[in-house]
Amino acid sequence: MGSLLYNQYEGYMREKFVHLLSDYGLYLVLLILVVISALLSPLFFSYRNISNLLTQSSFTGLLALGMTFVILTGGIDLSVGSIVGFASILYATLLHGSIFTFMPETIFIYKAAPELTPVFPLAVNFLFVLFIGAVVGSISGSISYKIGIHSFIVTLSIMIFIRGLAISYTHGQPLFGVPDYVSFLAYGTLFYIPMPAIIWIFASAISIILLKYMRFGRRIYAVGGDEEAARLSGINPAIYRISPFLFSGVFASLVGIMMCGRMACGDPKIAQGWELDAIAAVVIGGTSLFGGKGSIGGTIVGVLIMGLIINIMNLLEISTYPQQMVKGVIIVTALALQNILAKRSYA
């Protein structure tokens, strides 16, 4: 047999160990964090704490799903936090009977209808907001790909723009009052599982199917890994470079709608800086910022790790501000580890 080529593995075991570490190290970290949390507080394994943890993670988790698509193609989407805020206020205004609120006060004084008078039929309101998210995402993606500017700077501009638009929309005012079915999205449970977690799990499942079990997803990996190799195989890179931003926009606007329920209002100022949490989760999950490598599974673990770290810091009664510092350190450390492991295993 053709074993002539086979006997060239040197240090096979060590190599294997590095691979194991880079493949399963994440789960190990997750496990350690769970143990630490359990030791720190006997309440950790209570239903209340776990469901809280899941609910909190779900919002970042959904953004991180979209971000995974984007980062797999070597891009980055900084606009997601702003889109959450915009979607939240847009959805609230739709429920309150008008979308034409963005006008100078002198021309049009916006007064929210006291009771809920949705502009469109129920589901259409919902879909309309998702559609707007998709439009914003595809604009970012198209400008970045077609003009050849790094998505980082494009989405940065879009981030400022959308946040400004969201705040202008109702002159910065939150819009209170949402119907019960919206609150249900944030506070309801199904078989004792909180609704946001169910949505997150459902969206993760769809993303996994899309990325892992559809040709479409495999092509995203191919384009992200090596655009030239993909082109030689007859793949049109444009679609696979632009559509991840669309997904990211849709997920962000979904989070915006859920936040409406969570806050019982539409608020244009929410979710500032959430893009960083999403990026951090994706990077912790082992997805490479250069594209082509990573998975939704990793991202989910990354989100849980982030959630647990915050949970532990809360248990230790560390205030919000140092928590922010820790996040900054985590992002850079995760990237550094990724680089070091990658160097080891592909030397």
Binding site: R218, A222, A229, G292
Partner: peptide
């Protein structure tokens, strides 16, 4: 050869 090192041989 332009290859995708992170994807499996089969892919």
């Amino acid at each position: 050869l332009p290859v995708l090192p992170f994807l499996s041989v089969a892919e």
